[in-house]
Simulated assay, not measured.
Amino acid sequence: MLEKILGRDDTPVSATTQTRIAADPTTQLADATRRYVQPRHPGAAPAGSRQRAAAAR
Protein backbone atom coordinates (compact mmCIF):
# COMPACT_ATOMS: atom_id res chain seq x y z
CA MET A 1 0.00 0.00 0.00
CA LEU A 2 2.86 2.37 0.78
CA GLU A 3 4.28 1.79 -2.71
CA LYS A 4 0.91 2.77 -4.21
CA ILE A 5 0.82 5.98 -2.17
CA LEU A 6 4.42 6.87 -2.97
CA GLY A 7 3.89 6.01 -6.65
CA ARG A 8 1.20 8.65 -7.08
CA ASP A 9 2.20 11.65 -9.09
CA ASP A 10 0.02 14.68 -8.43
CA THR A 11 2.04 17.04 -10.57
CA PRO A 12 0.00 19.07 -13.08
CA VAL A 13 -0.08 17.89 -16.69
CA SER A 14 0.94 20.44 -19.29
CA ALA A 15 -1.49 21.61 -21.97
CA THR A 16 0.77 20.08 -24.62
CA THR A 17 0.61 16.69 -22.91
CA GLN A 18 -3.17 16.93 -22.51
CA THR A 19 -3.50 17.74 -26.22
CA ARG A 20 -1.26 14.81 -27.16
CA ILE A 21 -3.28 12.44 -24.96
CA ALA A 22 -6.58 13.73 -26.38
CA ALA A 23 -5.30 13.28 -29.95
CA ASP A 24 -4.18 9.71 -29.29
CA PRO A 25 -6.37 7.26 -31.28
CA THR A 26 -6.65 4.96 -28.27
CA THR A 27 -8.10 7.75 -26.14
CA GLN A 28 -10.46 8.77 -28.93
CA LEU A 29 -11.65 5.17 -29.42
CA ALA A 30 -12.29 4.74 -25.69
CA ASP A 31 -14.32 7.97 -25.59
CA ALA A 32 -16.33 7.03 -28.69
CA THR A 33 -17.01 3.55 -27.32
CA ARG A 34 -18.22 4.99 -24.02
CA ARG A 35 -20.58 7.39 -25.85
CA TYR A 36 -21.87 4.54 -28.02
CA VAL A 37 -22.44 2.01 -25.23
CA GLN A 38 -24.08 4.20 -22.59
CA PRO A 39 -27.26 5.20 -24.48
CA ARG A 40 -27.81 1.63 -25.66
CA HIS A 41 -27.13 -0.03 -22.32
CA PRO A 42 -28.53 2.06 -19.45
CA GLY A 43 -26.91 -0.26 -16.92
CA ALA A 44 -23.51 0.81 -18.27
CA ALA A 45 -24.11 4.44 -17.32
CA PRO A 46 -21.99 5.81 -14.47
CA ALA A 47 -23.68 6.09 -11.10
CA GLY A 48 -25.77 9.20 -10.77
CA SER A 49 -26.09 9.96 -14.47
CA ARG A 50 -29.66 8.64 -14.66
CA GLN A 51 -30.67 10.87 -11.76
CA ARG A 52 -29.08 13.91 -13.42
CA ALA A 53 -30.83 13.09 -16.70
CA ALA A 54 -34.17 12.77 -14.94
CA ALA A 55 -33.63 16.06 -13.09
CA ALA A 56 -32.82 17.83 -16.36
CA ARG A 57 -36.21 16.89 -17.86
Rank of each mutant, 00 (worst) to 15 (best):
M1G: 03
T16H: 09
L2D: 15
E3C: 01
L2W: 05
P12Q: 13
A22W: 03
A32P: 04
H41N: 15
G48W: 12
P42M: 13
A47T: 13
I21G: 09
P12T: 15
I5M: 03
R52C: 14
R8V: 03
S49D: 13
R20H: 11
D10H: 01
A53D: 09
D9F: 03
A55M: 07
A55H: 14
T26A: 11
Q51N: 04
A45E: 11
D10S: 04
Y36E: 07
P42Y: 08
S14E: 03
K4Q: 05
Y36G: 04
R20W: 00
R40V: 00
R34D: 12
Y36C: 06
S49T: 15
R57K: 11
T33H: 04
Q18G: 01
T27K: 02
H41R: 13
A55G: 12
A15F: 06
I5G: 02
V13C: 02
R40C: 02
P12M: 03
L29Y: 04
R50V: 12
A54Q: 07
T26V: 06
R57A: 08
A47D: 12
A55N: 14
L2G: 06
R57H: 07
P39Q: 10
D10V: 01
I5L: 14
P25A: 08
Q51W: 12
A47I: 11
D9M: 03
R35E: 08
R8P: 04
V13P: 00
A23Q: 14
R35L: 14
R52S: 15
T11Q: 14
R35C: 06
A53N: 08
R57E: 13
D31N: 09
T16C: 01
A44M: 12
T26Y: 01
T17V: 13
T17N: 10
A45I: 11
S14I: 00
A45H: 12
T11V: 01
L29H: 01
Q51V: 14
A54I: 09
A45K: 14
V37S: 00
G43R: 08
A30E: 00
A23P: 00
T19L: 08
R20I: 10
R20E: 10
Y36Q: 00
P42F: 14
T17H: 05
T19I: 07
